[in-house]
Structure formats: C-alpha cells, structure tokens
Design a protein around this nucleic acid. Sequence first.
DNA 1: CAGTGGTCTAGACCACTCT
DNA 2: GAGTGGTCTAGACCACTGA
Lengths: 253, 253
Amino acid sequence: MANDEPVWPDELFHDLDRAGPVPLYFQVSRRLEAAIQSGQIPSGARLENEIEIGRRLGLSRPTIRRAIQEVVDKGLLVRRRGIGTQVVQGQVTRQVELTSLYEDLRSTQHDPATQVLTHDVRPATDDVAEHLGIPVGSPVLYMRRLRSTDGIPVAVMENYLPEGLTDISRAQLEEQGLYQILRSRGVTIRVAKQRIGARSEHGDEAELLDVDRGSPLLTMQRTAYDAAGSAVEFGTHCYRPDMYSFETTLVAK
Amino acid sequence: MANDEPVWPDELFHDLDRAGPVPLYFQVSRRLEAAIQSGQIPSGARLENEIEIGRRLGLSRPTIRRAIQEVVDKGLLVRRRGIGTQVVQGQVTRQVELTSLYEDLRSTQHDPATQVLTHDVRPATDDVAEHLGIPVGSPVLYMRRLRSTDGIPVAVMENYLPEGLTDISRAQLEEQGLYQILRSRGVTIRVAKQRIGARSEHGDEAELLDVDRGSPLLTMQRTAYDAAGSAVEFGTHCYRPDMYSFETTLVAK
DNA sequence: CAGTGGTCTAGACCACTCT
DNA sequence: GAGTGGTCTAGACCACTGA
C-alpha cells in the first residue's frame, strides 16, 4: 500500500484557547468532528497516533484520548488496539439527542409552529402521578399541542408538568419549545427515559394531523428528570410517520 | 437534615481482581450498577466523594471517576459539581443496546423462535447497494425471517449481507440470532445506525404477524458496520407494536 | 469557607496487531 | 520487534456549591 499514511490536519488546532472556560478536549473534539463531517478528513482515513497528536498540539495524551473518545461515541471514528483510529465509512447521520421536537425541527431548517389545543391545571391521574413521582391528585399542568412544520401537521403532543411549573402560559407555549421555556426558568434536564412505539390513530387525531381514519402513528412516551433526579416532565406524543422518524447511532462498548 | 450522609457499600468491592483481564474501572462500575439496580443503594442516595472512594478501594481517582462515569452514562447516577453524586430517582428502565432482537428477547426471559421464510443470494438493488456501500448488482444474501416469542409472532425481519457472508446457512439462522452468527465468524459490530418509524401492514404481514389488515406496525431500518467501518448488515424489520417497543435513556452531555 | 466534581499533566506498563 | 490503543497512577489546579 502506498496510501496508508496517517492523517492529521495540524492547522485546525493552532489557536486553542487555554485560558477560556471551554475545555481543551472539547475544543479538539469539536474541530475534529467538523473536519470529518465536512470531508476534510476523508472516510476511511487513518488518524495520527495519540502520542504524536499530543506532542504536536502540546497536550497530554489523556486529553487527546478524551477528545477522540467523544468523536468515537458519536460514531464518526473507530478505534482498534494495535491498529489505530479510523474514520468510519459510510454516510453520516444525525444523532438522537436530548432535545425537544421543536429544536429537532428548527435545527433542520424548517419552520415549526405550535398551536396550543388545551392548557389547564388538573389533578394527576394514577398514570401521570406514577410517571412524575408525585401523589395522585396533585395539581399538574396539562397541555395538548399541535406541532406543524411548513404548514403541515407533524405531531400531537400531550404533556404534564408537576407543581412549581404549572404557571407556564399559553402564549409562551405558542412561541417557544417546552424545553426552551424550562431552561429559561433554570430547569436543566439531565436524564430522559423514552419509549417509542406505534398505534392506530384515534379520537380527533386524524383530523388534527390530516391523515385517514385508522392511520398508523408513531408514538413516543417520555419522562424527563432534572439534575436532582426529580421528574420535571411527562409526555405522550404521536407523530405522522411520513413526517417524522427517530434516528440513532449505536456504538458498541 | 439528619440523613444526608454519603453512602458507600465497601463490602462489595473487597475482592477486585487486579491480575485478570477485566479492567478495574469495569469491575467497580458493574458492581455499583448492580447495587443500584437491586436497591442496595437506594434511589436518591448521595455517594461518597471520589477521593474517599479511591482511598478505600486502593484505586486512583481517575479510575474511580471512569467507573462512576459508566454508570452516569447509563442514566443511573447524576453528578453535580460542588454537590456530589446521587442515585437518580424514579424507576429504572432497560437501555437500548447494540444487540439483535433475538438477544433482546432472550435476555428478558422469553423463549424466542425463528422461522426462515426466504433465504437466497441475489443481486443488490440500488437501495441495498447504497446502504451496504457496494456496487449495484453485487451478490448479497437475502433472508426474511419471522420471529416469535412464547408462540406469538413479534416481527418480520428482512436482512441483506454483503459478499463474504453469503454462505450463512438456513439451518444456522433457525437456531441462532444473526449477530451471534456474525460474532462466531469473527465479525464484530462496532457501530450501527438505525431509523425507527411506523407504517401500515402490507402484503402478507397481517397473516404472518396475526394482526388485522391495515394494522399499524413499528418499523426499524438498520445498517451495521464492523471495526474497519465496512457495512456488514442492512435490514428492515417490522414489529407488532403490542409486542415490542424501543426504550432509550438519554443523558445530557 | 470547606467540600465537591471538572480538567489536565507526565509519566508507566500492558495487550494486541502486523511485519 | 515495532507500533498502536487500553489501562492505571499520583499528583495538580480550577469552578462551583452550600453553609
């Protein structure tokens, strides 16, 4: 083989900010990721070894390892002991992240709009209480929203928020994603558990989503927890399967 | 507060194997995870700090940090700077992992069975060729299988394997999961990209899965890559939504 | 203020792969 | 045997939290 020489675009890393708040490993991993996504480091290319990268960047090996590991976890690189680190072959897809549908859609250049169908405070049912970890009958904010993109309905979303968050206004929900509102109130979501399934349309969903009666819908049920481990949101959503699907990249450990 | 004392069950970690091939951080993380899953470390409990844990176990802080990080990544623990490490509140769910349906079912104590409906070598169509990254018309092994558990049909699975793996026998497929077979042939899957959606039943699926005509089905399309980054499997599966769903735990970065 | 996790360093030894 | 990533150590300084 003539072309098995390792690749490392030094020039991308010559202005790392050692003083600022952004960790070095993160600065390196983001630039590395961008270089792969843009094709600057081509599919299948072998990277320079960790020690040499560290030497060139003036960083220790653990820092370089952590940067590379971040990119490996996103499925863009593969490491093999005794061999080296390679860019994965094949097309690159987007990762499922801890964001709301609104942000998913917005980040993909669409124009999301929200219509609030229902918005009230009601006592928690058994099911809702269990998911939120609160007593049955506690007041919860219930909202039912219709999300559209480019004028086409995409999803009907039902959400429940526990006491302390029940004062979110209808107007606010029309304008921002739920997770945006929560963040602006200082609520940070750390962990979310979701279950994805399918079922038939029922009730008024056919009309709202502009599909035939009895059409298949993609469903997602999610409970989100804040840093302290308390549930801050429980929701059941249903999506038009021709308008939305879930993508994941799985990486073996 | 009287009961804010940090928790650490020393006794679980007194027989770590420092000589064997299993990394120390992994031994620690697995026992820690088990202790949480079993309730031995209760929901909401605060863990001892990293330095102290390291001292008690005779391990360095980076090793302890890595062990804890593994459990954080699984969504069982939450870390907060200045505060400490806490067990997440709420029920524990299973993680989506890089395993086949067969292993999913088997690990949950069911009794999976496989019926091979079709099994032949054929030229790759445009679609299959693109997903596998091979030329159109290349020979690929096509298989269509019906998976059941406890006698109830769960999924119809269509899979395509590239040249070099086209000699997997029908008999073998009846007995083992596809990923098991691949592993036994030295093929290790490192990365998989999957898309989950929904659609209506069509063709003979209603009969195979014992559902009504036009019923909703949960669908999954997956391409799996080996350590070198080559695609080793492409498949489109459809599931009875009352028998199967996908669970994920998402952790904010 | 003391205590916590977050980051980083400069080494070391090992297991694995290829030649 | 040479080169690679995998693991581990023993420190260091910082940023953030809560009292």
